[in-house]
Design a binder for these strands. Structure first.
Length: 564
RNA sequence: UGCCCCAUGGUGUAAUGGUAACACAUCGGCUUUUGGUGCCGCUAUUCAAGGUUCGAGUCCUUGUGGGGUAACCA
């Protein structure tokens, strides 16, 4: 039974508030039942798990109600944006399993239309060129409790406005000398309505339009009009744009030609504990080389999660379970982890890898002999079959799986204690240890019971044992680099402290690189192959892995209910 | 301080005026050739006060708490 399948789940689940709204619109025949949403990233950074929610919401609504979704790059600020990000964003969306309608769109495709509309607003007396400094304008804006005052340029003549506007476009002016503002209401309760900026001068080349333009539209002016141009029905965005909605509507109402108008609806963004989600802070981690890049497996980016071993399905099911509402939230990262464990548990083969090896010599096992034992690949999926695992006199086990002395709660290997099972092999007993000059154990001596071979069906092999250990044959084991990742921050809400910089909370142990001994079966493992290292967790082959040197990333550890 | 939004177990989300539920987390038990998985169970929830109603988590009022907002960013 596929209980994790997102779509199957959705049929049983109640609709979220946006889905209810859209359902009602369709019932009422709005837009003739047509649904077109859009996902509008700014190409100034990589997508993160928060964007995955935005993608899920916009693409998901369209999927659910037979609509489509446009991908539109909101590229109105050439100083921050870059083509590199455009490609990375497209790749991430595709990887998540979504398809946008037609070709990707760019707000810059609409610069001409936007410019024409702006000229019309000027002609209608609804926009004007202001030639003050930003400081002066900020002063005139007033405060929430006191109305603003009019700019001395507010009543400039249409002719002068038009001429200045054209010269701004052509690059006749320095940055900061003039702006185009909408003429709305300097006393409005909503500060965004106090004659907001529509255009500013930026004399920098744009990644798509080159040096054609010297003015660039502001978000509020560009966004709603782009939605309008594309025929978007539902413009879904996060809560901080709620207060922009009256402006979004004012702009569209003043350029529209007919009944059609897109509707903006806001929902709360996704926040995860023990990480940061702002692009600015993520960029800082990248630039200061605190992480290895946008796709560092500790990053909450889509590319980071991918490299960490997350699957598109697990991310989608995670977003599905966290839901969509208007409440501020901080979601426990354990929920994200449980979604990937839940999927990997069912799909991924088990192998044996010893992360912190200590040698065990089985004194009564014949020297020089190797047996190739059958090991089950998955207890959850029989179709994954069996593989051969070599067994010999000298093996490695996990250092923490042995104690010279321990209480009854410790049911792993100890001296003079009960026998333990070597997974898919034999039962052994701890006999003695060798130590170096400092008293550290260097070798454990054990004996095995030849009648207890796994799968042999003998009475002896059916004896109840409390402990089962994973192991690898010393002679056959291969070395692999294993990167053990932990949360990047030690604080649940690293950017939630006004007096403390988020970097103060960085976890010094967020990455540990070790050399593990893994079974030879893994020799041919390829980039992105995923495994469960028995009793240790889920691991994925990193892109740094080569034929000569295997590299694994730990996606997530297994639940460990053993209280030490 | 004005305006806007939000308030359900530890976390997140449902209940659409009619028995407050689900997932994750926690704790306990059973099963198990992974101290994994699976199964069973425990603990724990409607911010407060009024009002409307036969009946309020849901509607109304006030209060309280949290968040957003006054960029030539998006």
């Amino acid at each position: 039974m596929e209980i994790t399948d997102v779509n199957e789940n959705e049929e049983k689940k109640s609709l979220n508030f946006i889905e209810q709204l859209v359902e009602n619109e369709i019932k009422e025949g709005k837009h003739d039942g047509r649904i077109l949403t859009r996902f509008p990233p700014e190409p100034n950074g990589y997508l993160h798990i928060g964007h995955a929610k935005a993608i899920y919401v916009s693409f998901g609504i369209a999927e659910k109600f037979g609509g489509k979704t446009n991908l539109r790059f909101d590229d109105t600020n050439p100083e921050k944006e870059d083509e590199e990000y455009v490609e990375a964003i497209k790749e991430d969306i595709k990887w998540l399993g979504y398809e946008w309608e037609g070709e990707p769109k760019f707000t810059s495709d609409y610069f001409d239309q936007l410019y024409t509309w702006a000229q019309e607003l000027i002609k209608q007396g609804k926009a004007y060129i202001d030639s003050q400094s930003s400081e002066e304008m900020a002063k005139q804006k007033g405060t929430p409790t006191t109305p603003g005052t009019a700019s001395p340029y507010r009543e400039r003549s249409t002719e002068e406005n038009l001429e200045l506007f054209e010269r701004m476009k052509n690059g006749d002016f320095e940055e900061g000398t003039h702006v185009l503002r909408a003429k709305i209401d300097m006393a409005h309760d909503n500060m965004h309505m106090r004659d907001p900026l529509m255009y500013r001068i930026i004399n920098a080349p744009h990644h798509r339009t080159g040096d054609t333009w010297h003015i660039y539209p502001m978000y509020d002016w560009a966004h709603g009009e782009s939605d309008y141009i594309e025929g978007i029905t539902n413009s879904l965005c996060s809560l901080e744009f709620e207060i922009h909605r009256p402006l979004y509507e004012w702009f569209v109402e003043n350029i529209k030609d007919g009944e059609y108008q897109p509707l903006q609806t806001e929902f709360s963004r996704l926040n995860l504990n023990y990480t940061v989600m702002s692009k600015r802070k993520l960029l800082q981690l990248v630039e200061e080389e605190i992480v290895s890049g946008w796709d560092d497996p500790r990053m909450p980016t889509i590319s980071g999660l991918r490299r960490r071993g997350y699957t598109p399905k697990s991310i989608r099911s995670f977003i599905d379970t966290v839901g969509v509402s208007k409440r501020n939230n901080i979601i426990d990262v354990a929920l994200l982890e449980s979604s990937v464990k839940n999927e990997l548990n069912k799909t991924v083969p088990r192998v044996m890898a010893v992360l912190d090896p200590i040698k065990v010599i089985i004194d009564n096992y014949p020297e020089g002999e190797t047996e190739w034992l059958d090991a089950e690949n998955s207890q959850e999926d029989e179709s994954l079959g069996f593989r051969k695992v070599p067994f010999s006199r000298e093996i490695y086990i996990e250092r923490e799986d042995f104690r010279e002395e321990a209480n009854k709660k410790f049911f792993r290997l100890k001296l003079g204690g009960k026998e333990v099972r070597l997974k898919s092999a034999y039962f052994i007993k701890g006999e003695s240890v060798e130590k170096d000059a400092d008293g550290n154990i260097t070798v454990i001596h054990a004996t095995y019971d030849p009648l207890t071979k796994s799968g042999s069906g003998t009475e002896e092999s059916k004896r109840k044992v409390k402990g089962t250990l994973h192991w690898v044959s010393a002679e056959h084991a291969i070395d692999a680099e294993v990167r053990l990742y932990d949360r990047l921050f030690m604080d649940e809400n690293p950017d939630g402290h006004k007096e403390t910089n988020f970097k103060e909370f960085l976890n010094p142990d967020s990455l540990k690189v070790i050399t593990a001994k893994v079974e030879p079966y893994l020799k041919d493992a390829k980039h992105d192959d995923k495994f469960q290292f028995q009793r240790k967790g889920y691991f994925v082959v990193d892109k740094d892995s080569t034929a000569d040197k295997l590299v694994f990333n730990r996606t997530v550890g297994l639940r460990d209910s053993w209280k030490k």
